[in-house]
Nucleic acid binder design. Sequence first.
DNA 1: GCTCCACCGGAATAAAAGGGAA
DNA 2: TTCCCTTTTATTCCGGTGGAGC
Length: 382
Amino acid sequence: MNIFEELGEKKTVFADKQYLDHRFLPDNLPHREEQIKSIAKYWIEALNNVTPPDITIYGKTGTGKTAVAKFAMKQLKEAAKNNDLNIRTEYIRCTDYTTEYQVIARLCQQMGRDVPYRGWTKAEVINTFRNLFKKNAFGKDLILLVVLDEIDILLRNDGDGLLYTLTRTDNVSILSISNYVDFKKFIKPRVRSSLRDREIVFPPYGAQQLVDILEERSKLSFKENALGDDVIPLCAALAAKEEGDARYALDLLRTSGELSDEKESDIVQGDYVREAKDYIEHNKITDIIMTLPSQQQRVLESILYLTKRKEEITSGRLFEVYKDVSRGDSVSYRRIFDFINELEMLGLISTNTVSRGRAKGRTNIIDLQCDTTVLEDAIWGM
DNA sequence: GCTCCACCGGAATAAAAGGGAA
DNA sequence: TTCCCTTTTATTCCGGTGGAGC
């Protein structure tokens, strides 16, 4: 028998897993009606052939920002089609397109103009982009709504040039999505003044709200009676503790189901959820570390070494150990400073700057934020 | 040969609080 | 006790280099 067919016949608690993927866009988003309406209230201008105001969305991970934005895009596209208007919506994730050049080039490409990744000057690309709005044979003005997801990443990396360019292009409206409230500190005043944005805040989901979300999705994705009574409340409770992260809740539910299949059980048990929690945590860390550049792995290795020796990790001591580990092939302290910041952004470590007076000066105290055994497995193992 | 940009490091500036002067 | 200075490192600013697409 064919091995794929054989595996395909294995029994499962799932009806269709795809509905548990956080990228799946459901037809309705429970407990986000208000936020959708807020966006619609501004974007409706586009249907009157007026460029809508810019919008900024804040909220922690898994609070439905991306889903709501995409939902609004879809709805607007439908409405525009019905009214025969020339409205375009483009979604760009700034972790994939990390500089002004890349974003503008991507926008050109998505709107049908071929632009090379390199070779052109920034000005050429921007001109090409702006020309898209000029000639319009059909008389109707083109209005572009750009969704910039995780814009804080781009601002940190490349500055506010992109926002400057976009706000100074007629008929472009920006919807920026950020995990951090303070991302505007990266925007200089000259740009901030032209970014007259409306702000919408996404609060974390509460446990009961997460239950509603999970129940809706589980109806689509699990077979009937495949879930134990306590499974959804448990997933919701655990995710509520993780700052109301719906993505995490969905992950837990899916992984619990997968564990259940592995054990060839007909019903997902509450115990599997707890197992799933460990599994996800372990995998998350391993994934992050595997994709880390080797220099950063070395920094992490040094931190692990010092943690195991129960030494207090100051930035100076870390640099010493790092140089030792690197054996000549090391980068400067200046670089390590950046690496430490990046590791902190990833949630692997935490830092705390303290000052110890005249004799000792300032230093960073670094703490490992993940399980040492998991980290050891990831760095040494495999 | 041109451009973008990831990666890098030097130099300047900022920060905090113990130490010492008053 | 108060206040300011010193010390040491964090943090920022900025420019250089080289690989890669064109």
